[in-house]
Every structure is written in structure tokens, then in C-alpha cells.
Design a protein around this nucleic acid. Structure first.
Lengths: 244, 244
DNA sequence: TTTAGATAACTGGTATTACCAGTTAGTGAA
DNA sequence: TTCACTAACTGGTAATACCAGTTATCTAAA
């Protein structure tokens, strides 16, 4: 049974938290960036100037700057320009997600499972939304990859770009971010796995992979949802089998 | 035509980046946490002790700690315990995604679209994987919520827990993380939207929402995939319509 | 013996000062 | 006009000091 609360305690007090000065500065700058009062490329005042503005010491200012840089809002280079507001980037989301996956002890199987449904949706969207530019970019990427089928290292390096272009064609930013995450993680797995294979087995595998990539492209080009879904599903499951 | 590179430049030099000391310390601690050498609940040495270990000044140590705290790896409270390793938490992903939304990088429409396919997969998995414990937890949650249908604020606060239990029943960690993200973001939208509604309209809306929640539960309990998918799809689309 | 209270030894939060190593802009001479 | 030098920036780091809290210990009173 829950403890009966004292009637006077029901006034809905909020915890009286005291924030660090660096925290307040961090939030203030972050807000300005999110609200567009500070735009990508803009220079932040120098640390010594901020000291005056915020009426705080330099270490305090610097702690705030470190947080802003770590969370991807600004970049700080010594000597010249100082702190510059960055273009919004998915790298942070991607990185945090990768770390979360790593810390959360997520298995390859779970990630692959989720990837399947994510890529399935992506490929469906891509079939109806791909522009001529998307197709041209995919074609060019595939041609580049075709030249590297015999060089696994190179091919693995190009794989994320191909899948990225598919996600881009699907026109959903969340899908793009997730796709990048999956690609990055799977790339690592792939790299560690192929070292135990004979060169002949590697070549065979990557020739198969490339043919799948081509088939997916053809299906997307034709706008054939079912064919594209099937191809992507086969591609991913073959991939998982090979990595097992 | 691409500029012809000088032959001598082909040796594949990597940029000679110099890292800040605080950056190195940050990565070192982060690695230890990711590798499990530091576990949730563990206390980090005091700043003065770290000074000795890393052979760096306190401001440098503190900059690293600020970054670790900002990215969600540790929590620092003055006075007592100092820096403590945190339980892995998805709040960072949520936060970065929310920021991405705010900065216009990701639209609400895109996020909703992706959520639909994510929740669709989740509910399918839940139908076949839910345990008796999952069902009991869902039932209990729904009962708690039923008591609050007339209090929108309370109900909104409980909504993420319900969807979280569904994701938990689906037994896919990635799905769980994504679900939390979506819930958190949508919770905010919901809060901002209901303020413009009359109390009567609010009640009507939440009664409808609750009936949907119940229907989803019944379908999952029955293990009826199609019924569950339909219910979830309706729930999400109704939700989007209401928020438009 | 037990217990309450004072105290000493921590913790992080912050400010101050100082110096170094780079970059940039201005100044002067050729 | 051009080049080289210098002065005035920039961030990176160190050292020291003090404050405000917490915690543990010890002491004195019950």
C-alpha cells in the first residue's frame, strides 16, 4: 500500500535544483543556436569576451564550450577562429546511438532484426520517391564498386555510401540516420569477419553481394516495390548468414 | 576533370591532428565505461586524484568530466559522491533527436512516418513474444491509466510507459530505444497541443486514445497480429491527425 | 553504553593569475 | 607594391586559492 502523503505536501513543489554556471551558459548558447539567433558559420565571442558577458571566470566558460563542442554544436580550433557554430549533423545521433547499442548490450541479432524492418520501409519509400538524381548517384556508386569487387577492403568501405544513397532516395531523415548507424556498425563486423576467410571465399562473397546491390538498384529504378523488398531482404539475410 | 595528384602524395598520409588533453581523458574514461571496466554505480576517483593519475591540472580534468556528464556517461554531484558512472540511458539519443527536430533537420512528419513502421514491427513481434509478465504489466498500466482518462496531464505522463511496455514485450532493444525516443518527443508535442483544447474536447480525445490502447492490448493478448497492426496504425494516425 | 553534536577531512564549484603556442592583422622597410 | 617582422589577438594549460556542501569520525553528554 502506498504511503499516505501529508496533505500539505500536495502543493506540487518542484525540486530546488541549483545549476552550475557552466550549465546555464551551455543552455543559453545552445538555445540561441536552436532558435537560429546563432547560425552555422557564426563565430562565438572569444573566451575572454564571454568572461565579461557572462560575468564568469575562464574555466567556467571553457567548461560550457567543451560541452557545446562535445554535443556537436560548435567546433573550437586553437589559435585562429576560436569557436564556430557548426552545421547540424547526424554524427552525434549516430555516435550516441552506437554507444547506446554498445553499452546496452544489444546483440547483433537484435540489431539485424530491426535493420531488416527499417531497410524494408526505406526501400519501399525509395521505389516511389527516388528522383533521377538519386538513380544517377546510385548508378555511379555501383559502377565505382563494380571496379572493386576483387578488393574486399575497398568494397566494404564503399558499402555504406551505397546504402546511404538508397536511404537518401527514400526521403526520410530518420531512416537516413538509422541507416548510417546500421552501416557503420555492420561495417565493423564485416571487417572483423572477412579476415578469417580465404581470398577466394572473399571474392565469391563480394561478387554475390554486388549482384544483390545491382538487383536492388534495378528494382528501385523500375519502382517495383515487391521486387525491391525481396532483393533487400535476401541481401540482408545473406549478409547475416555470411557473418554468422 | 579531377586534378592530377603528385605521385609522391599517394602515400596515404593521415592528417596529423593533435588532441586536447581533456579530449584524451574523455575518451579514455568513455572507453572504460563502454568496455565494462567501469560499471554503473562505480565512483570515479576525485578530481584531485585524477590530476595525479592523468598528470594534468584540475581545469583539464574538469573539462573532460563536463563532457562525460553532458554525454550521459556520468553524473556529478557536488559535495558528496563526486562522479558516478550512470546506468546506460537513452536520454541522450532522445535529446539529440529532439534538437534535430527543433533545428528543422528532421520534420515531425518524417519522424511520424518512421515511427509508424517502427511501431508496426514492434507490435508484430510483441504478438508472438509477449510473456505473461508482459501482459500483466500492460494490464496494470492500463488500469492505472484508466483512472486518469479525465486528467490529460496525468494521462500523457503515463503514455510513454505503456508504449514502452509494448516495446519491451517485443523483445528488441533497438525497438525499445527508438520507442522511448518517439514517445518522449511526441509527449512534448502532445503537451503543447492540448493547451489549446477545451476540457471537453480533451476528455473526448483521451477517452478515444484509451480505447485504442485497450484494443491494442486485447490484440496482443490474443496474439492476433493483423488486429494489433490495424489498431496500432489507427492509434498513430488518429494521434497525428489530432496533433495537426 | 548509547547518542547527539561538533569537527575534521573530504567532495566538487569557482575565481584568479600566469604562461605557452599558435594565428592574424597591422606596420614598416625594401 | 611587396615582403618580413611584430604586436595583438586566439585557445590550451597549469598552479593556487577559496567557498560550500557532504561524510565520517570523534568527543562529550545522557
Amino acid at each position: 500500500m502506498p504511503v499516505k502523503e501529508n496533505a500539505a505536501a500536495a502543493v506540487n513543489f518542484r525540486p530546488a535544483v541549483t545549476k552550475r554556471a557552466s550549465e546555464i551558459i551551455y543552455e543559453q548558447v545552445k538555445e540561441m543556436i536552436l532558435k537560429g539567433e546563432l547560425n552555422p558559420g557564426d563565430r562565438l565571442p572569444s573566451e575572454r569576451n564571454m568572461m565579461e558577458m557572462f560575468q564568469r571566470s575562464r574555466p567556467t566558460i571553457r567548461e560550457a564550450l567543451r560541452m557545446l563542442e562535445r554535443t556537436g554544436y560548435i567546433r573550437i580550433v586553437a589559435g585562429s577562429n576560436g569557436a564556430v557554430v557548426l552545421e547540424p549533423d547526424d554524427k552525434n545521433i549516430q555516435q550516441t546511438m552506437e554507444d547506446a547499442l554498445q553499452v546496452g548490450h544489444i546483440s547483433l541479432a537484435e540489431m539485424s532484426e530491426y535493420r531488416r524492418i527499417s531497410e524494408d520501409a526505406t526501400i519501399v519509400w525509395a521505389c516511389s520517391r527516388r528522383t533521377d538524381e538519386d538513380l544517377a548517384a546510385l548508378r555511379a556508386q555501383l559502377d565505382k564498386m563494380a571496379a572493386c569487387v576483387e578488393q574486399p577492403e575497398e568494397y566494404i568501405g564503399m558499402d555504406p555510401a551505397y546504402h546511404g544513397l538508397l536511404a537518401k532516395a527514400a526521403k526520410n531523415q530518420v531512416g537516413i540516420v538509422m541507416n548510417k548507424t546500421f552501416s557503420a556498425i555492420n561495417q565493423n563486423f564485416m571487417r572483423t569477419k572477412i579476415v578469417g576467410m580465404t581470398p577466394a571465399a572473399q571474392k565469391k562473397m563480394f561478387r554475390k553481394v554486388h549482384e544483390m546491390h545491382e538487383e536492388i538498384y534495378r528494382a528501385v529504378q523500375a519502382g517495383d516495390e515487391q521486387r525491391a523488398r525481396t532483393a533487400m531482404a535476401q541481401h540482408l539475410s545473406a549478409f547475416e548468414t555470411d557473418l554468422k
